[in-house]
Design a protein around this nucleic acid. Structure first.
Lengths: 253, 253
DNA sequence: ATTCAAAGTTCCGTATAACGGGACGAATAG
DNA sequence: CTATTCGTCCCGTTATACGGAACTTTGAAT
């Protein structure tokens, strides 16, 4: 099929099935076959393989992904002890600010939500653990970028470009590098409605003892509460304090 | 390879790789090849396929599962709106009892933790979302079994048997069926140290409007706090009340 | 610095097993 | 009761997944 790439195409088909089920929630054999352009027998064989191994369940409404993925997902975020410490800090930040706090990690050139906690003034959010957003359009992502070697930043840009999510998203290459420089000087990042209109955030990168980036913490909230002294002084210093403590915890755990 | 079963063996290999990474946390190409008895080129092709699709990351310490699984895992537990309602009830139960509460679901003949919340008197637990335990050795699992058709129970027994986790685990077939009958009469299940020595729990099944089992709620705690009036009256009635409300919420949401 | 060993990547010919088509059986609807 | 759709199974063909080997890179040791 794809002679160029040196991959296992049956595995790709299986992943296509998984992703289809991820999108549809539930799907019948014939639907899977049609949507993925496979013969019924092939779709059947793939679904049964995944089912036998416990990754798919066959319900009355069709096939669906099983909770096996919950185990794998939970594993990916507890594997790294630094993530667990970061999660505790997120709780603390959310409690102290009453806004939303989150910990994100860069993976495959995108920023992934690892953990998120909303304070009492909860803002309905469309983010959830595992969700991926462009690095250049999130406070944590920008903070992470600012501590990555330039070559890495270039590679990410080449792969994903600078998609605009709102009219305020950074879409210019030079502007991005200027902003990263700014973040390095300031020590923290600002995302002013770059992800969602009306939402502002401050972020800071978390590094280990060698200076390698682990992820980024951020605090976000609606523009009417994210301004003035709170936004310019209180939150940044809270965030930097939390990041600092976290880095110490990680280094000397 | 396995001519009997009608499965896709390349996909099985890929799943082997995923499961190896789940166990090892991180593994190098040569390790993967050796452990799974694959040639280096095959292991390489599989790892790169998974990496290209975003399911694996190539770090300094070797390959590891990516946070893509966090997205899939989170999806499996939010897909079903009933699960979300159940999670809210778990929070309520944990708060009101100050013990640990959980919601579990039966899948592939095993009981899976979907969500768990520990009250203030937190007991360190080895359970986590996605973890699978034998149905016959958990309060929620037993409650679920009691509402499944006998044929289904038989099938589960045939597949998994009655493994003993402690000296108190039900290991006798007849004893299990007697216990299930008992649960039906009582309306809730009791797990007296069947999972872990010193841990007791009460559980109840959650069904939808047609009587189809959705999952099970349970409250668990150390034996010194799970006894007397609390264990025999208060918790069961709290649990049954919560289950009842939950079923109404699910039916008329 | 230089050498050596181990790990990782790429290429290629061969044998296998993944594929689609079709036949059969089951379930649902008209 | 018939017709249609859906799911399962089987089989011959061919694409492709495989292992071996050559090559490159990494990094450890001297």
């Amino acid at each position: 099929m794809n002679a160029q790439t040196n991959t296992v195409s049956s595995v790709e088909k299986a992943l296509d099935v998984i992703e289809l089920l991820r999108e549809s929630g539930t799907a019948r054999l014939s639907t899977v076959a049609r949507d993925l352009d496979l013969s019924k027998s092939t779709a059947h064989r793939h679904l049964k393989t995944l089912e036998q191994r416990g990754y798919v369940v066959d319900t009355d409404d069709g096939y669906a992904l099983s909770l096996q993925f919950l185990d794998l997902g939970e594993f990916t975020r507890t594997r790294n002890p630094a993530y667990q410490l970061a999660m505790e800090k997120v709780d603390e930040l959310a409690r102290r600010t009453d806004e939303r706090a989150q910990f994100m990690v860069e993976e495959h050139g995108r920023a992934v939500y690892v953990y998120r906690k909303t304070g009492n003034h909860a803002v309905k959010a469309d983010s959830f653990p595992g969700k991926r957003v462009p690095v250049h359009a999130s406070a944590a992502g920008l903070a992470i970028l600012s501590k990555l070697p330039d070559s890495r930043v270039e590679a990410i840009l080449a792969q994903h470009g600078l998609e605009a999510l709102t009219s305020k998203t950074i879409t210019d290459r030079d502007e991005l590098f200027a902003e990263l420089e700014c973040i390095r000087e300031r020590g923290y990042s600002i995302n002013d409605q770059g992800t969602i209109e009306g939402l502002r955030a401050v972020g800071a990168a978390v590094t280990d003892a060698d200076g390698t980036v682990i992820g980024g913490l951020s605090i976000s909230g609606p523009i009417n509460r994210m301004r003035g002294e709170r936004f310019e002084e209180e939150f940044p210093s809270l965030l930097l304090g939390a990041t600092n403590e976290l880095e110490l915890n990680i280094a000397y755990q």
